[in-house]
Protein backbone atom coordinates (compact mmCIF):
# COMPACT_ATOMS: atom_id res chain seq x y z
CA UNK A 1 0.00 0.00 0.00
CA UNK A 2 2.80 2.36 0.83
CA UNK A 3 4.52 1.47 -2.39
CA UNK A 4 1.51 2.29 -4.46
CA UNK A 5 1.27 5.74 -2.87
CA UNK A 6 4.89 6.37 -3.77
CA UNK A 7 4.25 5.22 -7.25
CA UNK A 8 1.78 8.06 -7.77
CA UNK A 9 4.37 10.49 -6.57
CA UNK A 10 6.95 9.00 -8.89
CA UNK A 11 5.01 9.76 -12.00
CA UNK A 12 6.36 12.64 -14.08
CA UNK A 13 3.47 14.87 -13.20
CA UNK A 14 3.71 13.93 -9.58
CA UNK A 15 7.36 14.94 -9.61
CA UNK A 16 6.65 18.42 -10.94
CA UNK A 17 3.91 18.86 -8.41
CA UNK A 18 6.23 17.90 -5.67
CA UNK A 19 8.81 20.46 -6.71
CA UNK A 20 6.13 23.09 -6.82
CA UNK A 21 4.88 22.38 -3.36
CA UNK A 22 8.34 22.12 -1.95
CA UNK A 23 9.24 25.54 -3.27
CA UNK A 24 7.21 27.35 -0.64
CA UNK A 25 8.95 26.09 2.47
CA UNK A 26 12.28 26.52 0.75
CA UNK A 27 11.65 30.16 0.10
CA UNK A 28 10.58 30.59 3.66
CA UNK A 29 13.75 28.99 4.95
CA UNK A 30 15.95 31.11 2.69
CA UNK A 31 14.38 34.47 3.36
CA UNK A 32 15.47 34.95 6.99
CA UNK A 33 19.13 34.22 6.21
CA UNK A 34 19.07 36.76 3.35
CA UNK A 35 20.91 34.75 0.75
CA UNK A 36 21.52 36.06 -2.76
CA UNK A 37 19.37 34.98 -5.66
CA UNK A 38 22.03 32.78 -7.29
CA UNK A 39 22.67 31.08 -4.04
CA UNK A 40 18.96 30.63 -3.67
CA UNK A 41 18.75 29.07 -7.11
CA UNK A 42 21.69 26.78 -6.33
CA UNK A 43 20.01 25.71 -3.17
CA UNK A 44 16.78 25.15 -4.94
CA UNK A 45 18.44 23.00 -7.59
CA UNK A 46 20.29 21.06 -4.92
CA UNK A 47 17.09 20.48 -3.02
CA UNK A 48 15.27 19.50 -6.19
CA UNK A 49 18.09 17.13 -7.09
CA UNK A 50 17.91 15.67 -3.62
CA UNK A 51 14.17 15.26 -4.03
CA UNK A 52 14.63 13.69 -7.45
CA UNK A 53 17.27 11.34 -6.15
CA UNK A 54 14.96 10.37 -3.33
CA UNK A 55 12.22 9.75 -5.83
CA UNK A 56 14.56 7.64 -7.95
CA UNK A 57 15.27 5.55 -4.91
CA UNK A 58 11.53 5.14 -4.50
CA UNK A 59 11.22 4.20 -8.13
CA UNK A 60 13.95 1.63 -7.70
CA UNK A 61 12.27 0.26 -4.60
CA UNK A 62 8.91 0.22 -6.31
CA UNK A 63 10.33 -1.60 -9.28
CA UNK A 64 12.02 -4.06 -6.96
CA UNK A 65 8.77 -4.66 -5.05
CA UNK A 66 6.78 -5.04 -8.24
CA UNK A 67 9.30 -7.57 -9.56
CA UNK A 68 9.05 -9.50 -6.30
CA UNK A 69 5.27 -9.43 -6.47
CA UNK A 70 5.37 -10.71 -10.02
CA UNK A 71 7.73 -13.53 -9.16
CA UNK A 72 5.55 -14.60 -6.23
CA UNK A 73 2.52 -14.59 -8.53
CA UNK A 74 4.38 -16.77 -11.01
CA UNK A 75 5.48 -19.25 -8.36
CA UNK A 76 1.93 -19.43 -6.98
CA UNK A 77 0.51 -20.19 -10.41
CA UNK A 78 3.19 -22.78 -11.15
CA UNK A 79 2.52 -24.39 -7.76
CA UNK A 80 -1.19 -24.70 -8.47
CA UNK A 81 -0.40 -26.25 -11.85
CA UNK A 82 1.91 -28.81 -10.37
CA UNK A 83 -0.59 -29.56 -7.61
CA UNK A 84 -3.33 -30.23 -10.24
CA UNK A 85 -0.98 -32.55 -12.08
CA UNK A 86 -0.23 -34.38 -8.84
CA UNK A 87 -3.96 -34.81 -8.12
CA UNK A 88 -4.59 -36.47 -11.49
CA UNK A 89 -4.78 -40.29 -11.07
CA UNK A 90 -2.46 -42.46 -13.10
CA UNK A 91 -3.87 -44.35 -16.14
CA UNK A 92 -3.44 -47.59 -14.18
CA UNK A 93 -5.65 -46.28 -11.37
CA UNK A 94 -8.21 -44.98 -13.86
CA UNK A 95 -8.48 -48.43 -15.47
CA UNK A 96 -8.86 -50.02 -12.06
CA UNK A 97 -11.67 -47.62 -11.11
CA UNK A 98 -13.41 -48.17 -14.46
CA UNK A 99 -13.31 -51.97 -14.12
CA UNK A 100 -14.52 -51.71 -10.53
CA UNK A 101 -17.46 -49.54 -11.63
CA UNK A 102 -18.25 -51.94 -14.51
CA UNK A 103 -18.45 -54.86 -12.09
CA UNK A 104 -20.69 -52.74 -9.86
CA UNK A 105 -22.98 -51.98 -12.81
CA UNK A 106 -23.17 -55.65 -13.79
CA UNK A 107 -24.20 -56.59 -10.28
CA UNK A 108 -26.72 -53.76 -10.30
CA UNK A 109 -28.08 -54.87 -13.67
CA UNK A 110 -28.46 -58.43 -12.43
CA UNK A 111 -30.30 -57.29 -9.33
CA UNK A 112 -32.64 -55.14 -11.47
CA UNK A 113 -33.22 -58.12 -13.79
CA UNK A 114 -34.13 -60.30 -10.82
CA UNK A 115 -36.38 -57.58 -9.39
CA UNK A 116 -38.41 -57.14 -12.56
CA UNK A 117 -38.15 -60.75 -13.78
CA UNK A 118 -36.48 -59.73 -17.03
CA UNK A 119 -34.45 -62.27 -19.02
CA UNK A 120 -31.88 -61.55 -21.71
CA UNK A 121 -31.32 -64.13 -24.44
CA UNK A 122 -28.37 -63.88 -26.79
Amino acid sequence: MNISSTSSQNSVFGLTNQTNTSKKPLVRSVDPVDVSKTEQEKLLNKQANQRISADQQAIAQFEKNQFEANTTKLTVSSNTFSRAAQDQPSPKNETAVASYQAVGNLAQRESVQQLFGVDVFA
Binding site: D119, F121, A122
Partner: peptide, 13 residues
Protein backbone atom coordinates in the same frame (compact mmCIF):
# COMPACT_ATOMS: atom_id res chain seq x y z
CA UNK B 1 -28.14 -60.03 -31.01
CA UNK B 2 -30.06 -59.82 -27.75
CA UNK B 3 -33.71 -60.39 -26.92
CA UNK B 4 -35.02 -59.07 -23.59
CA UNK B 5 -38.17 -60.83 -22.42
CA UNK B 6 -40.39 -60.85 -19.35
CA UNK B 7 -42.20 -63.95 -18.17
CA UNK B 8 -42.78 -67.05 -20.26
CA UNK B 9 -41.08 -70.43 -19.99
CA UNK B 10 -37.31 -69.98 -19.84
CA UNK B 11 -36.52 -73.38 -21.32
CA UNK B 12 -38.71 -72.87 -24.40
CA UNK B 13 -37.42 -69.33 -24.95
Amino acid sequence: GLCTTQGGIGFAI
